[in-house]
C-alpha cells in the first residue's frame, strides 16, 4: 500500500504561521474529506502535498521518497486547483481545450476519452475562454482535470463550489464510479459537508492550521451525541466525557459529547441524547462556544 505522508509540515507567510507542524498519513485506496473553516489552511496544505508550494519546515513523502521536486513522485500526484480567474489574470485568456491540452502534457496517464465524456456530461464548451466561464463551469473544468489525470493520488480543492445541486450529484457519482473502478486515492476539500459525508471514508478536520481530527467518518459521527436537558442534569451526566460546544438557553443546556471506546452516557439523568451528523460534529469542533 502506498502512503503520502506529511512530516511536521509548517508553513509561514512572513511572520504569520498558517500551518503548525502537521503530521498526516494518507493511505492509498481511500476517499478522504478535508474540511475546515475558511482560512484554516486547506489550500495551503494541499499545495504543499503536491509540490506546488514549499513548506517552511517539514517534508512530504510518497512511499518514503520526498515529493519535493521529484519527477517520479509528481507523476503519481494531481492537485487540481480551484480556478479563480480574475480580470487581470492572464490565465483567463486560455480556452478550455488549451488548458486541458496543457494538463495532458504533464499527466502521464491522462485519459482523453474520459476527458471527452466529462466535457459532454457537464456540457462545457471547449472553445470558451476561462474568463467567460461561470464559477460552476470553472469547477467543472477542475473536476475534469482531476478525474482525467488518472493520478494515483488526486487532490481536489472545493470541486463543488458554485455547482448546482444536479451537477454536484453528478460529480459525486462520477467520483464514486472512478473510485470503484480504479481504487485511486482522492482527497477532497469541501464546505458542503453533509452532501459529501457519506462519500468520505475518512475525514480530516483542519482548524487554524492544525489537524484536530482524522478518523473514519462513520466512526467519528457514530460516537458523537448531542445531549440536552436541564443544565444541572446535563452537566452531571457529561461530567467525565469529552465535551464540545456547550450552548445554554434559560435553564436548558445542550452539549456535544464524544464517547471513547467503552464509554457510555450514564443512566439516571433527565436528558435527551440525540445522534448528530458530520456537519454538526464539525461545527462543534471548530465553531467555538456560543451563548444564546
Amino acid at each position: 500500500m502506498s502512503q503520502l505522508v506529511c512530516h511536521g509540515i509548517t508553513k509561514s507567510y512572513g511572520d504569520k504561521e498558517v500551518l503548525h507542524g502537521i503530521d498526516l498519513t494518507l493511505e492509498s485506496g481511500k476517499i478522504y474529506g478535508l474540511i475546515g473553516r475558511n482560512g484554516a489552511g486547506k489550500t495551503t496544505l494541499l499545495s504543499i502535498l503536491s509540490n506546488q508550494n514549499p513548506a517552511t519546515a517539514g517534508a512530504v513523502t510518497l512511499d518514503q521518497e520526498p515529493v519535493w521536486e521529484n519527477r517520479k513522485a509528481l507523476d503519481r500526484l494531481c492537485f487540481s486547483r480551484e480556478l479563480n480567474i480574475s480580470s487581470e489574470s492572464g490565465l483567463g485568456n486560455y480556452r478550455v481545450k488549451d488548458y486541458l491540452r496543457a494538463a495532458a502534457t504533464y499527466y502521464t496517464h491522462w485519459d482523453r476519452d474520459l476527458e471527452k465524456n466529462l466535457m459532454t456530461t457537464f456540457g462545457v464548451d471547449a472553445k470558451k475562454r476561462l474568463n467567460k466561464l461561470s464559477k460552476g463551469m470553472l469547477s467543472m473544468v477542475t473536476i475534469i482535470v482531476a478525474l482525467a489525470s488518472k493520478a494515483e493520488f488526486t487532490l481536489l480543492d472545493e470541486p463543488v463550489a458554485g455547482l448546482d445541486v444536479v451537477a454536484r450529484e453528478q460529480f459525486y457519482r462520477l467520483l464514486l464510479q472512478e473510485y470503484t473502478q480504479t481504487g485511486r486515492t482522492f482527497v477532497i476539500s469541501t464546505h458542503i459537508i453533509e452532501e459529501a459525508a457519506d462519500l468520505l471514508e475518512e475525514v480530516i478536520i483542519l482548524d487554524q492550521g492544525r489537524v484536530i481530527r482524522k478518523e473514519n467518518t462513520q466512526e467519528l459521527v457514530g460516537r458523537a451525541f448531542q445531549v440536552t436537558g436541564l443544565a444541572e442534569q446535563v452537566e452531571a451526566a457529561i461530567g467525565n466525557l469529552e465535551t464540545h460546544h456547550k450552548e445554554s438557553l434559560g435553564r436548558s443546556e445542550s452539549a456535544m459529547v464524544f464517547l471513547q471506546k467503552g464509554q457510555s452516557i450514564p443512566e439516571g439523568y433527565e436528558i435527551t441524547v440525540q445522534p448528530v451528523n458530520l456537519q454538526k460534529v464539525f461545527v462543534a469542533l471548530c465553531g467555538g462556544e456560543t451563548q444564546i
Partner: peptide
C-alpha cells in the same frame, strides 16, 4: 501565466 500553470500541473 504559464509558470504557475506548469507547476500546478506537476512540473518541477
Amino acid at each position: 501565466v504559464q509558470l504557475p500553470l506548469a507547476v500546478s500541473f506537476g512540473s518541477t
